[in-house]
Design a protein around this nucleic acid. Structure first.
Lengths: 239, 239
DNA sequence: TCCAAACGAGAGCACTGCTCTCCCCAAACC
DNA sequence: GGTTTGGGGAGAGCAGTGCTCTCGTTTGGA
């Protein structure tokens, strides 16, 4: 509180070194996460790789859970970047193409970083709850992009989907809140289908990453995924 | 190897006591799993609750991983029983009703036993791989029931679904193997859609159990799930 | 120049999984 | 019934973990 209050960003030497150490911790943490997995992520091991004694890293990271939070945020950012990069190559008016691009990007990133994907979308690490104020922002980047697709298509008037089955009346309130919070205009049945496609997309990716299809039963999983994407495009009435 | 070789089942007093202890271990393990989660599952804690010293439980369970395997098998069995019970109340000819019943049963069980559900369908516990020879049997009960639904509907000639998008030619081999292994006759496009519905169903359940929808954003998640089920019924052309 | 803050090291506590040895007693065999 | 054998419990111990506390040292800023 004393000396260097203010807006930081002034880059004092100490802050500079500190940020470098923080980056090193996250970097080493990511490699450990990728090689040994989330439960085997050990602050002591990170400290060893960093050339520090275990207690020293507690100057930077308050607990193992906070290290997990850092990795969660890092993962969401990377996934969000991957999706945005993929979207950059698709015309905004090509709604089906954008949905497919998002799906492919999510799958590709998940297969490349299965441990981080598991940390974000798998079973919660027991005893650990990601602090909402730090993770919801980066955590909603993908679904934000998905919603953009439906909304764009709806505004362009090119959504062709049956409005049956009709969402239950009890859902109206929830859907209205979603519509308000995301500032969209698409009707209830489209929002509900969008949520389904969102969940289905990650369900497909999770099945593949977590090996639920059975070990080695699929010789061409990418073909199956492409087909599923194509069906999902129809589920929200894009073309 | 010495005395009591043979088919067991003869229930010698020792074997009887042993099985009782095994059941106690699984029972206590389940409560710990439910209260503290998979990563916090500790053989020592189970031993304490059992009134034993930690080394004693190693007479029954070779390792912590084996305890996890016991709980995995136990969970698959319970889920399979839940699904079968739900199906018992639906006419075999009511294909849509059977799919909905399976979906509801899976969701209800997952919400009732989130920790076990996470163990089965969430991110794999790091360093632990479920031994296929012990888990694939019980682990395929649900998908077996799902496949039964499509197959029954197909045989009854009541499947009304577009055969587009056409599964990629490269998928033919994989789909043929699935058809052979499960002894079904449904065509490629129906099998592919069935796989999608399977993954989508568990994607929806996982999103809800793992809180991916955002904490407390849905006031009536069951209504949303019902709607998703209704859409998925259409995805495989049931009515 | 001097002080306070930042920082690293080390010891220590309570916990974990797992191994090994010791030993008792009940079950199994004659 | 007596003998033996092995199942099973207890305890110590090793290596690892998260985390805390204390103790010096370094170093940046006033």
């Amino acid at each position: 509180m004393a000396t260097m209050t203010g807006m930081s960003d002034a880059l004092t030497p100490r802050a500079r070194a500190r940020e470098q150490t923080m980056r090193d911790i996250v970097r080493i943490g990511r490699t450990h996460l990728a090689t040994e997995g989330a439960a085997a992520l050990s602050l002591r091991a990170v400290a060893r790789d960093l050339g520090l004694v275990s207690s020293a890293v507690y100057r930077y990271v308050a607990s193992r859970d906070e290290l997990l939070t850092l990795l969660v945020v890092d993962g969401y950012d990377e996934l969000g970047d991957a999706v945005d990069t993929a979207l950059a190559g698709v015309e905004r008016s090509d709604h089906a193409g954008r949905l497919v691009a998002i799906g492919r990007a999510v799958r590709a990133w998940a297969l490349a970083e299965p441990a981080t994907y598991a940390l974000l979308f798998g079973s919660p690490v027991p005893g650990y709850v990601a602090p909402a104020e730090r993770t919801t922002g980066p955590g909603t980047r993908v679904v934000t992009r998905l919603v953009e697709v439906w909304e764009d298509a709806w505004l362009a008037g090119v959504v062709a989907v049956d409005d049956r089955p009709t969402p239950a009346p009890g859902l109206a309130e929830d859907l209205a809140r979603i519509r308000r919070e995301l500032a969209i205009t698409a009707p209830d049945h489209l929002i509900a289908r969008g949520v389904l496609v969102w969940a289905a997309l990650f369900g497909c990716v999770s099945f593949e990453v977590f090996g639920q299809y059975g070990a080695g039963t699929l010789s061409r999983p990418e073909d199956l995924f492409e087909h599923h994407l194509a069906v999902l495009v129809g589920t929200v009435g894009l073309r």
